[in-house]
Design a binder for these strands. Sequence first.
RNA 1: UCCCUAGUAGCUCAGUUGGUUAGAGCGGCGGACUGUUAAUCCGUAGGUCGUAGGUUCAAGUCCUACCUGGGGAGCCA
Length: 482
Amino acid sequence: MEQIRRTKIVELLQSTAFGAQVNVKGWVRTKRGNKQVNFIALNDGSCIHNIQIVADVASFDEALLRRITTGAAVSINGEITESSGSGQKVEILAKEMEVMGDCDVDKYPIQPKKHTLEFLRENAHLRFRTNTFGAIARIRHAMIFAVHEFYTKKGFVNIHTPIITASDAEGAGEMFKVSTLDYDNLPRTEEGAIDYSQDFFGKATNLTVSGQLEGELAALAMGEIYTFGPTFRAENSNTSRHLAEFWMIEPEMAFYDLDDNMDLAEEFLKYLIQYALNNCMDDLQFLSKRLQEEEKNKKADERSMELIEKLQFVLSNDFIRLPYTEAIEILRNSKPNKKGKFKYPIDGFGSDLQSEHERYLVEKHFKKPVILTDYPKDIKAFYMKQNDDGKTVRAMDVLFPQIGEIIGGSQREEDYDKLVTRMKEMDVPHEEMWWYLDTRRFGSVVHSGFGLGFERLMLFVTGMGNIRDVIPFPRAPKTAEF
RNA sequence: UCCCUAGUAGCUCAGUUGGUUAGAGCGGCGGACUGUUAAUCCGUAGGUCGUAGGUUCAAGUCCUACCUGGGGAGCCA
């Protein structure tokens, strides 16, 4: 074959250089045709759309055409032409074709037809080759970039917090142990406990559940920082909204109170959504169409808003900011509560809100994102700033429709004595946390931060229903394939 | 971890109160068609009914346990 530099399909589809000789490489999605002419739909991952290759059957070996099957990798030299078909403006009239990698159709699991998401999840190594997962991968990348762009523009400093940590005091969930000890022959202390002094780090270590505490250390010197890294939770939670390994963005800001914190969270989420609308429209439109097909099978009152409309709706509305005690009042007086429709009836101050309550507030009562603030201190973490009422803390949860809690954050307790007292009350080993407490001993200031679950954001932006479909290789209980 | 639900052809599913040789669509393959868009039309191959027990003259169908998937709950991001 003549050597021509490869052009990506995303560029070819924009091209008007009719007559130009180009090379295109990619994977065959479908082939159809008759004795005279073959049409090959080719995709190279550069965009959701395929380019149509037109091959005059008489110009090619029958054996070669036979090898061009769904899934095969091919390299094609040809001429950019104006399409005479109705589905596209541009196509490639093939001059030379080469099969780079054959694909045995009897064994290849991805067929040119609709597959269920469950089936593709079991074939996650090949699901990038479908329109849906190609779109999700491109949107995920765009969102990663937008996160860094947002904070860079605001002058935040990105901090890599440790993935292996000796701190077990975050209280954010069960942890995965990190060890090089021989499980079949564990060293023991005289009391019979496992002797971690002989372990790699000389103490018990875990995978991080949050970079927040280290983030605070950086914020109380750099001013405004953010982390963006993997976090690990060994909770046995089997839901469509939880992963054992997920990515989290945790900004932490000195001199920010809770109001500043909420302003930032809202601006941040809207920035990301706007970025997706500005840069991923083709992929969003595809996902939207896909969702609409699915929605057809649902009852009218269970159907959700069209994807792009939903994203624009969030952009054009202020988030509701609501203290916990007011939320309780709304729920107490709500129809479902009075009619006994809630599985967990609202009786008063102190109880944590169940997902049915959050969903009622977001989806039924306000019909827009809600930031709940000032939760009872007993259901929140030790580091949250205590209010003067002695009952609540300066916490904030951002609740999104369908997803629930997308952001959790708070103003932090900057007072050394109050923090230590709270740690003792909640059995947090404050001696081990001396390094964290030092920030409150030396130049402590008002500061705040929050955590955004990146995959939860992806759920919202893509409209997907299962969190295992918005991360390439999901890790969950009994699930570590690929 | 708890509750509900499902597992039948490569994929998506149907299979009646338990009853003879287990069905369809899509996909594959073969053929027809001068430009198709998930092409269309004709033909064709393809199944240890999740696994292990049990009930019964007889089990895809009923019962038990386990495995795996899905939905919901809790935990949270």
